[in-house]
C-alpha cells in the first residue's frame, strides 16, 4: 500500500470521526435550544484542532514505518488518481451547497445554511479520500 493510500485511509477515518462529532454537537445543541444554533467558532476550532493533531501524529507514524515511501513524490498514477477523486468529490460539494441554498430559499434559515455548507465540505472531502482508495485499488 502506497503512502498516499495509507494517508487517504487515515485522513478519511479521522475526518469521518471528527465530522460525525461536529454534526452530533450541532444536532444535540440545536435540539436543546429548540432551533438551529448559529455558527460556533469554538466547535469548529476544537474539530479542526482534533483533526490536525490526529493527522500529524498518524502521518509521523506511517512515515516512520516506511520512510522511503514517505519521501516518494507524486508520480503520473498518483496525479491521475488524485485528480479524478478530486473531480468527483467536487460534485458532492456542489450538490450539498445547492441543497443548502434551496433550503435557505424556502426556509430562510441562515444558520442551517452554514451547517449544511460545513457538512458538505466534510462529505466531499471524505468522498475524495474514499475515491482515492478505490482508484488506487481498482485502477484509474
Amino acid at each position: 500500500m502506497s503512502f498516499h493510500e495509507k494517508s487517504a485511509w487515515i485522513m478519511g477515518l479521522l475526518l469521518s470521526l471528527t465530522g460525525l462529532w461536529y454534526i452530533n454537537q450541532v444536532w444535540s445543541r440545536s435540539e436543546a435550544l429548540g432551533e438551529t444554533i448559529g455558527p460556533n467558532i469554538v466547535l469548529i476550532a476544537v474539530a479542526t484542532g482534533m483533526l490536525v493533531f490526529g493527522a500529524i501524529i498518524s502521518h509521523i507514524i506511517i512515515a516512520a514505518s516506511s520512510p522511503e515511501e514517505a519521501n516518494d513524490v507524486e508520480d503520473e498514477r498518483d496525479k491521475q488518481v488524485l485528480r479524478r477523486a478530486g473531480n468527483i468529490s467536487g460534485y458532492v460539494l456542489g450538490f450539498g451547497i445547492f441543497a443548502g441554498l434551496w433550503h435557505y430559499y424556502f426556509l430562510a434559515d441562515g444558520n442551517m445554511l452554514f451547517h449544511i455548507a460545513v457538512a458538505s465540505l466534510i462529505a466531499s472531502q471524505v468522498a475524495e479520500y474514499a475515491l482515492t482508495i478505490l482508484f488506487y485499488r481498482r485502477g484509474v
Binding site: M1, S2, D75, E76, R77, D78, Y136, G139, V140
Partner: peptide, 22 residues
C-alpha cells in the same frame, strides 16, 4: 522510469496503463 514501486506493481497487474513516455 521515474515512478513509484506501487505504480510498477499496478502496471504489472494490468490495473494501470502507463503514459506513453513511461
Amino acid at each position: 522510469i521515474g515512478v513509484t514501486r506501487q505504480t510498477v506493481i499496478a502496471i504489472e497487474q494490468g490495473r494501470y496503463s502507463p503514459s506513453l513516455e513511461s
